[in-house]
Protein backbone atom coordinates (compact mmCIF):
# COMPACT_ATOMS: atom_id res chain seq x y z
CA UNK A 1 0.00 0.00 0.00
CA UNK A 2 1.32 3.46 -0.93
CA UNK A 3 1.14 6.39 1.45
CA UNK A 4 1.85 10.09 1.47
CA UNK A 5 2.64 11.89 4.70
CA UNK A 6 2.83 15.58 5.38
CA UNK A 7 5.34 16.37 8.08
CA UNK A 8 7.22 19.15 9.83
CA UNK A 9 10.83 20.14 10.15
CA UNK A 10 10.93 22.09 13.38
CA UNK A 11 13.24 24.72 14.73
CA UNK A 12 15.36 22.25 16.69
CA UNK A 13 16.21 20.21 13.57
CA UNK A 14 16.40 22.98 11.01
CA UNK A 15 20.15 22.58 10.54
CA UNK A 16 19.92 18.90 9.66
CA UNK A 17 20.98 18.52 6.02
CA UNK A 18 18.80 16.89 3.42
CA UNK A 19 20.55 13.51 3.26
CA UNK A 20 20.85 13.32 7.02
CA UNK A 21 17.14 14.09 7.33
CA UNK A 22 16.32 11.37 4.86
CA UNK A 23 18.31 8.84 6.86
CA UNK A 24 16.74 10.01 10.11
CA UNK A 25 13.25 9.53 8.72
CA UNK A 26 14.10 6.10 7.39
CA UNK A 27 15.44 5.10 10.79
CA UNK A 28 12.31 6.40 12.46
CA UNK A 29 10.23 4.34 10.06
CA UNK A 30 12.28 1.31 11.01
CA UNK A 31 11.81 1.97 14.71
CA UNK A 32 8.10 2.41 14.13
CA UNK A 33 8.13 -1.09 12.64
CA UNK A 34 6.50 0.22 9.52
CA UNK A 35 7.81 -2.29 7.02
CA UNK A 36 8.71 -0.38 3.90
CA UNK A 37 8.76 -2.30 0.66
CA UNK A 38 12.11 -2.79 -1.03
CA UNK A 39 12.59 -2.38 -4.73
CA UNK A 40 13.54 -5.46 -6.73
CA UNK A 41 16.86 -5.74 -8.47
CA UNK A 42 20.56 -5.73 -8.02
CA UNK A 43 20.74 -3.03 -5.38
CA UNK A 44 17.45 -3.08 -3.48
CA UNK A 45 16.45 0.12 -1.75
CA UNK A 46 13.41 1.31 0.13
CA UNK A 47 10.45 2.58 -1.88
CA UNK A 48 10.60 5.96 -0.25
CA UNK A 49 11.01 9.52 -1.47
CA UNK A 50 10.89 13.06 -0.21
CA UNK A 51 9.48 15.96 -2.20
CA UNK A 52 11.65 18.99 -2.89
CA UNK A 53 14.58 19.26 -0.45
CA UNK A 54 14.34 22.02 2.12
CA UNK A 55 17.35 24.30 2.49
CA UNK A 56 19.46 23.83 5.64
CA UNK A 57 18.40 26.44 8.17
CA UNK A 58 14.77 26.62 7.07
CA UNK A 59 11.90 25.20 9.09
CA UNK A 60 8.75 23.82 7.56
CA UNK A 61 5.21 22.84 8.40
CA UNK A 62 4.55 21.39 4.98
CA UNK A 63 7.00 18.70 3.89
CA UNK A 64 6.01 15.53 2.08
CA UNK A 65 7.20 11.98 1.82
CA UNK A 66 5.85 9.05 -0.18
CA UNK A 67 6.47 5.44 0.72
CA UNK A 68 5.11 1.99 0.17
CA UNK A 69 4.40 -0.38 3.04
CA UNK A 70 4.26 -4.13 2.87
CA UNK A 71 1.11 -4.20 5.00
CA UNK A 72 -2.11 -2.30 4.75
CA UNK A 73 -2.51 -0.09 7.79
CA UNK A 74 -4.83 2.76 8.68
CA UNK A 75 -3.60 6.31 8.11
CA UNK A 76 -3.96 7.10 11.79
CA UNK A 77 -1.91 4.14 12.82
CA UNK A 78 0.91 5.06 10.45
CA UNK A 79 0.93 8.58 11.86
CA UNK A 80 0.76 7.43 15.46
CA UNK A 81 3.50 4.86 15.13
CA UNK A 82 5.85 7.25 13.38
CA UNK A 83 5.30 10.12 15.77
CA UNK A 84 5.90 7.90 18.78
CA UNK A 85 9.48 7.24 17.74
CA UNK A 86 10.52 10.14 15.51
CA UNK A 87 12.97 12.82 16.64
CA UNK A 88 11.56 15.96 18.18
CA UNK A 89 10.61 18.36 15.38
CA UNK A 90 10.08 15.71 12.71
CA UNK A 91 6.40 14.89 13.12
CA UNK A 92 3.73 13.73 10.75
CA UNK A 93 0.71 16.04 10.52
CA UNK A 94 -1.39 14.01 8.16
CA UNK A 95 -1.29 10.77 6.18
CA UNK A 96 -3.27 9.66 3.19
CA UNK A 97 -3.25 6.53 1.08
CA UNK A 98 -2.33 7.03 -2.55
CA UNK A 99 -4.46 5.78 -5.39
CA UNK A 100 -2.99 3.53 -8.03
CA UNK A 101 -1.08 5.47 -10.62
CA UNK A 102 -0.87 8.66 -8.62
CA UNK A 103 2.27 10.63 -9.24
CA UNK A 104 4.98 10.85 -6.61
CA UNK A 105 5.03 14.08 -4.63
CA UNK A 106 8.61 14.59 -5.75
CA UNK A 107 7.46 14.67 -9.36
CA UNK A 108 4.40 16.83 -8.75
CA UNK A 109 5.67 19.75 -6.74
CA UNK A 110 5.96 23.07 -8.58
CA UNK A 111 5.31 25.79 -6.02
CA UNK A 112 5.98 26.49 -2.38
CA UNK A 113 4.62 29.04 0.04
CA UNK A 114 6.96 30.63 2.56
CA UNK A 115 6.82 32.76 5.63
CA UNK A 116 9.89 34.90 6.06
CA UNK A 117 10.66 36.92 9.17
CA UNK A 118 12.61 39.93 7.95
CA UNK A 119 15.15 41.93 9.92
CA UNK A 120 14.16 45.23 8.31
CA UNK A 121 10.91 47.13 7.94
CA UNK A 122 9.56 47.03 4.44
CA UNK A 123 6.10 48.39 3.78
CA UNK A 124 3.37 46.58 1.98
CA UNK A 125 3.26 49.42 -0.56
CA UNK A 126 6.89 48.83 -1.40
CA UNK A 127 6.26 45.18 -2.10
CA UNK A 128 3.19 46.01 -4.19
CA UNK A 129 5.28 48.28 -6.37
CA UNK A 130 8.06 45.74 -6.37
CA UNK A 131 5.99 42.90 -7.78
CA UNK A 132 4.16 45.06 -10.27
CA UNK A 133 7.37 45.91 -12.13
CA UNK A 134 7.52 44.63 -15.73
CA UNK A 135 10.58 42.60 -14.98
CA UNK A 136 12.23 41.69 -11.70
CA UNK A 137 15.86 41.19 -12.35
CA UNK A 138 18.22 39.45 -9.96
CA UNK A 139 21.75 38.15 -10.11
CA UNK A 140 21.67 34.37 -10.04
CA UNK A 141 24.76 32.38 -9.20
CA UNK A 142 25.27 29.58 -11.66
CA UNK A 143 28.14 27.19 -12.22
CA UNK A 144 29.49 29.43 -14.96
CA UNK A 145 29.33 32.64 -12.91
CA UNK A 146 26.60 35.13 -12.13
CA UNK A 147 23.77 35.73 -14.55
CA UNK A 148 20.98 38.24 -14.67
CA UNK A 149 17.62 36.50 -14.53
CA UNK A 150 14.04 37.69 -14.54
CA UNK A 151 12.13 36.10 -11.69
CA UNK A 152 8.81 37.80 -12.26
CA UNK A 153 7.16 34.61 -13.49
CA UNK A 154 8.37 32.69 -10.48
CA UNK A 155 6.41 34.83 -8.08
CA UNK A 156 2.79 33.84 -7.73
CA UNK A 157 2.08 36.04 -4.79
CA UNK A 158 3.97 38.15 -2.24
CA UNK A 159 2.75 40.35 0.54
CA UNK A 160 3.92 41.75 3.85
CA UNK A 161 2.32 41.74 7.26
CA UNK A 162 4.34 43.61 9.83
CA UNK A 163 7.87 42.31 9.30
CA UNK A 164 6.74 39.02 7.85
CA UNK A 165 6.90 38.33 4.15
CA UNK A 166 4.43 35.79 2.77
CA UNK A 167 5.34 34.54 -0.65
CA UNK A 168 4.39 31.76 -3.00
CA UNK A 169 7.08 31.04 -5.56
CA UNK A 170 8.43 28.40 -7.93
CA UNK A 171 9.71 25.46 -5.94
CA UNK A 172 10.25 22.48 -8.15
CA UNK A 173 12.76 20.49 -10.08
CA UNK A 174 12.05 22.32 -13.34
CA UNK A 175 11.59 25.84 -12.15
CA UNK A 176 12.94 26.96 -8.83
CA UNK A 177 13.48 30.26 -7.06
CA UNK A 178 15.44 30.49 -3.86
CA UNK A 179 13.41 32.45 -1.36
CA UNK A 180 16.55 34.31 -0.30
CA UNK A 181 16.93 35.59 -3.83
CA UNK A 182 13.48 37.07 -3.74
CA UNK A 183 14.12 38.64 -0.36
CA UNK A 184 17.38 40.08 -1.59
CA UNK A 185 15.75 41.62 -4.65
CA UNK A 186 13.11 43.12 -2.42
CA UNK A 187 15.67 44.55 -0.01
CA UNK A 188 17.65 46.03 -2.86
CA UNK A 189 14.49 47.57 -4.29
CA UNK A 190 13.66 49.06 -0.90
CA UNK A 191 17.23 50.33 -0.50
CA UNK A 192 18.01 48.07 2.45
CA UNK A 193 21.11 46.02 3.02
CA UNK A 194 20.54 42.28 2.85
CA UNK A 195 22.16 39.55 4.93
CA UNK A 196 20.66 36.16 4.24
CA UNK A 197 21.78 34.85 7.63
CA UNK A 198 19.51 37.30 9.39
CA UNK A 199 16.16 36.26 7.99
CA UNK A 200 14.13 33.27 9.22
CA UNK A 201 12.41 31.14 6.64
CA UNK A 202 9.57 28.71 7.20
CA UNK A 203 8.04 26.75 4.38
CA UNK A 204 4.27 26.60 4.72
CA UNK A 205 3.26 24.15 2.05
CA UNK A 206 3.96 22.73 -1.38
CA UNK A 207 1.64 22.78 -4.40
CA UNK A 208 1.28 21.92 -8.03
CA UNK A 209 -0.68 23.71 -10.75
CA UNK A 210 -3.83 22.03 -11.94
CA UNK A 211 -6.11 23.82 -14.41
CA UNK A 212 -4.52 27.16 -13.49
CA UNK A 213 -5.07 26.63 -9.81
CA UNK A 214 -2.68 25.75 -7.02
CA UNK A 215 -3.48 22.37 -5.63
CA UNK A 216 -2.21 20.85 -2.38
CA UNK A 217 -0.66 17.43 -2.24
CA UNK A 218 -3.06 15.96 0.28
CA UNK A 219 -6.13 16.68 -1.85
Amino acid sequence: MKYRAKYTKGDNVKFVGHLDLLRSIQRAIKRAELVVKYSQGFNPHQVFSIAQPLAVGHTSVGEYMDFELVNDMSEDEVKQRFNDVSPEGIKIIEVRKLNDGENKAAALVEYGSYKVVLDKNISDDTIKNFISQDTIEVEKETKSGTKIADIKNDIIDAKIEGTVLHATISTGSNQNLKIELLAKALYTYAGEEFDENKIDVERQDLYYMYKDELKGLME
Binding site: V13, F15, V56, N197
Partner: peptide
Protein backbone atom coordinates in the same frame (compact mmCIF):
# COMPACT_ATOMS: atom_id res chain seq x y z
CA UNK B 1 22.43 32.66 17.63
CA UNK B 2 21.04 31.27 14.40
CA UNK B 3 22.74 33.80 12.19
CA UNK B 4 26.09 32.46 13.37
CA UNK B 5 25.06 28.83 12.98
CA UNK B 6 24.10 29.64 9.41
CA UNK B 7 27.66 30.70 8.69
CA UNK B 8 29.52 27.64 9.96
CA UNK B 9 30.16 24.24 8.48
CA UNK B 10 27.87 21.46 9.74
CA UNK B 11 25.90 23.54 12.28
CA UNK B 12 24.18 20.36 13.42
CA UNK B 13 27.38 19.59 15.33
CA UNK B 14 26.24 22.16 17.88
CA UNK B 15 22.48 21.86 18.10
CA UNK B 16 21.85 18.40 19.63
CA UNK B 17 18.28 17.12 19.69
CA UNK B 18 19.17 13.71 18.30
CA UNK B 19 16.92 10.76 18.86
Amino acid sequence: PDYILKQVEKPVRYTGGEY
